[in-house]
Amino acid sequence: MIEMTAELPWIAAVPVALLLLIGAGLTLVGSFGLLRLRSFYERVHAPTLGTSYGMGCTLLASMIFFSVLQGRFVIHEIVIGFLILVTTPVTLMLLARASLHRDRLEKNEQVPPPR
């Protein structure tokens, strides 16, 4: 295990800790939904918890941490955030459409027919 050595003032450490816990908690709940929800179309909704505010809180914690640690604005985490924000909807949309296509090919009654 890597040892934690960075000493932060309380005013920064408490928000960082809270944001980390909230972000990780949302990610956990989202992935738990992946396990728990019953149909594929319901499960599509679950990971967005992790990719919206789960990711946002974790990245914000990282930004605050490094900004305070290095004494300057460290905001390159925004790049990851933007990337995930733009790419996740594309992936999920393609997956939902692929799944719909396959279900229709198999004449699955639960999906709406093509118009």
Partner: peptide, 27 residues
């Protein structure tokens, strides 16, 4: 198969978040 792809995508995002927390730990 679509469930597997969805799981893999979630796995990637979670791994990315885990790396960010490792970065905070290492400073």
């Amino acid at each position: 198969a679509q469930d597997r792809v969805l799981g893999l995508d979630t796995l990637y995002v979670n791994a990315m978040l885990l790396l960010v927390t490792f970065g905070i730990r290492a400073g």
